[in-house]
């Protein structure tokens, strides 16, 4: 029986090794992450923004969220608190002090940055989130299991979750108006902006335009296009008249947010070599130690 044990041990080990050999092909299954050279983006010029909050209204209307009438947006008291996008508002505008002119504060629209190398896409357990060729980072609600790992991963703290729904709570964030754009329309916020503080276009063009603006009006802008290189680049980029950390933009490096995590992950699972090697090693240890045990047993 013992010899049989050893034989079946070998057989099973080969079977497992063979099975492991097959897995790399399937391991590549994952979410779409296309980085098209023609991807679109939006350039947000915070020096142009007048804080009218029309974009908030337009966004809610376009996404079928509960929307108060437009006149109520003339009320500026919501600016008294820092607000974050949530499931009831996928974009919000915040107000910051303007040292140049206290009468005209700087207002900053916040929404998903649509990263070129999104942490959420890398993190999502079921691969529900994907980066599209048109630049949008969108998600498939039907796949989502509500684990909220995307929220943990996002360096901009954007995805929001419907915490007060017992059944079918959704992750929600700016979807770059994928549906509207499919109909040939502009993103709702871009369309509604009275002063075109939001410029929609191919990201390449926008970065060039942003650089032009900074070059031609260096006293108006800080020489930094936020999102050009942050976390490997984002589809939405920002221009500002004051340092970005004063406008509560997170200070982020140029490495893609999922970089370290993915390299660890791929290191551990480098074509399943480390796990299979470990398996083989343990098998060998088990075999030899059991043999030794048997011998001891025979001797006794």
């Amino acid at each position: 029986m013992k010899s049989q044990n050893r034989r079946s041990f070998l057989k099973a080990s080969t079977a497992i090794a063979a099975a492991a050999g097959l897995t790399p092909a399937t391991a590549n299954a994952g979410p779409k992450n296309i980085l098209s050279p023609n991807r679109m983006g939006v350039l947000v010029d915070t020096t142009v923004c007048i804080g009218c909050r029309n974009c908030e209204w337009a966004c809610k209307t376009a996404h079928g969220l509960d929307t108060p009438p437009l006149e109520t947006y003339e009320d500026k008291t919501p600016f008294d608190q820092m607000r974050r996008p949530d499931t009831t508002a996928l974009t919000v505008v915040n107000r910051y002090e303007n040292p140049e002119n206290p009468e005209l504060p700087t207002t900053v629209k916040v929404q998903c940055m649509h990263c070129d190398h999104p942490a959420c896409v890398s993190a999502c357990i079921v691969g529900a989130i994907s980066k599209q060729a048109d630049g949008a980072v969108i998600w498939d609600t039907d796949k989502c299991i509500g684990c909220r790992y995307c929220m943990v991963a996002c360096p901009f703290q954007i995805p929001a979750f419907e915490y007060n729904k017992a059944i079918g709570p959704r992750i929600m964030k700016c979807d770059f108006c994928t549906e509207r754009r499919g109909e040939g329309k502009l993103p709702a916020c871009v369309e509604s902006c009275p002063v075109e503080a939001l410029t929609f276009g191919p990201r390449e063009d926008l970065v060039r335009i942003a650089k032009d603006r900074v070059r031609h009006a260096p006293e108006r802008y800080v020489d930094h296009i936020y999102g050009e290189y942050e976390v490997g680049g984002t589809s939405w980029c920002y221009l500002a008249g004051t340092e970005f950390d004063k406008l509560q933009f997170p200070k982020l490096g140029v490495n893609p947010a999922p970089g370290v995590s993915e390299s660890i992950q791929h290191g551990i699972f480098a074509y399943f070599v480390p796990p299979v090697s470990l398996y083989a090693l343990l098998g060998a240890v088990m075999w030899t130690s059991r043999q030794r045990g048997d011998e001891e047993e025979e001797h006794s």
């Binding site: 979410p31 993190a123 357990i125 079921v126 989502c144 299991i145 509500g146 709570p169």
Partner: peptide, 22 residues
């Protein structure tokens, strides 16, 4: 998780780069 009835999703929906998936 918000949608506990979808706990089986990772079995058929794979994302190799996700630590959580692993």
């Amino acid at each position: 998780i918000g949608r506990y009835y979808y706990i089986w999703h990772p079995l058929i929906m794979w994302n190799g780069s996700s630590a959580l998936f692993e």
